[in-house]
């Protein structure tokens, strides 16, 4: 039995298989609408989430399965002090697979250690969010046609942004990938990511403070939100939240085929004036998130969809 707790829990080959399955689902969703009939997904969400929870639920419903769960710690036995280990032991007897979001880092790993059903990490604090990474990779593969030979701009909160950290770790497994990090000094990527991941593997990257001059270099621009909940200090949040807003003026510097991705929700870091720009693919990315999760659920349940295409 396999769990997906970190974006690297899937090897490149396993990831390729999941992405290929997701692309087949995109092409022929009708072929998959009963593959999870009789199966149940438990969504254990200890903190509020709109799109991730609904995306998981939509994925399971699209596959003909059922969904049960809770959407905040207050409505779960966690409010009575039950441990993650005890909760997952019980849920294992109710469902076939589980998606867990938890404000504390490492909670899904604890669940995986005690679970008898596959556990998918649906976000643990500022740590990992592997299905967002899977969504990002599917979007890039589907819309750029490749996962190698890319120059990727990462903009905004690169310090606390878990999606960025996971994307870096996932993308360095492909050939000739370069990064351009665009952020205020206070929100640069953590040192360990720079030294233990990028420098250690000789991955080319540069760190800049201004977006416009680097725009022409980019194949992709991955925007992130400056998240209030990641700050201990309200003053720092207010001072930095409007840094690096992407608007139509800045988009003029971008290539015709550069894609703009964003894990959503957006606050104001992407102006709504570029929503209709064909290069702005963040809503399509959210849609692909459902397909990515469908493919992952099928894979972890051992339903590889062979013969369905």
């Amino acid at each position: 039995m396999k769990h997906v707790i970190s974006p690297l829990d899937l090897s490149v080959d396993e990831l390729d298989a999941v992405l290929s399955l997701a692309e087949k689902i995109i092409d022929h969703p009708e072929n998959y609408k009963t593959v999870c009939q009789g199966k149940k997904l438990a969504t254990l969400f200890y903190e509020p989430s709109t799109r991730t929870r609904l995306s998981f639920e939509a994925a399971m419903l699209n596959l003909g399965g059922n969904v049960l769960g809770f959407s905040s710690a207050d409505s779960s036995s966690a409010s009575k002090g039950e441990s993650v280990a005890d909760t997952i032991r019980v849920i294992s007897s109710y469902a076939d697979i589980c998606a867990m979001r938890h404000p504390k880092e490492g909670a899904p790993l604890v669940a995986a250690q005690y679970s008898s059903i596959p556990v998918i990490n649906a976000g643990d604090g500022g740590h990992n969010h592997p299905t967002q990474t899977l969504t990002d990779l599917l979007t890039i593969k589907k819309l750029k046609g490749r996962l190698n030979n890319l120059t990727i701009g990462l903009c905004g909160d690169l310090k606390f942004g878990r999606t960025v950290h996971s994307l870096i770790r996932a993308m360095i497994r492909y050939d000739n990938v370069k990064f351009v990090m665009i952020s205020p000094d206070e929100l640069r990527i953590p040192d360990y990511l720079r030294t233990e991941v990028l420098d250690a593997q000789n991955i080319p990257y540069k760190e800049v403070n201004v977006l416009e001059p680097v725009m022409p270099e980019l194949d992709l621009l991955y925007m992130t939100r400056v998240q209030r909940e990641r700050f201990f200090n309200e003053e720092d949040y207010i001072r930095l939240k409007d840094s690096f807003i992407l608007n139509a003026k800045k988009m003029k510097y971008a290539r015709e085929d550069m894609l703009v991705l964003h894990p959503l929700p957006r606050v104001n870091e992407i102006s709504t004036e570029i929503d209709d720009d064909p290069r702005a693919v963040y809503f399509k990315q959210a849609q692909y998130g459902v397909y990515a999760r469908m493919a992952l659920i099928m894979t972890l349940l051992g339903l590889d969809g062979d013969g369905l295409c």
Binding site: S83, V84, A85, P103, K104, E105, G106, L109, G125
Partner: peptide, 29 residues
Amino acid sequence: RCITSIEQELPHKFKLADKNTGIYRCIYC
């Protein structure tokens, strides 16, 4: 922010991340 901060009975486990520098990382966070 680590799960060990609220679940007191969990063992604190660390893995050696870098032999040269002796850096250990918590397996959870």
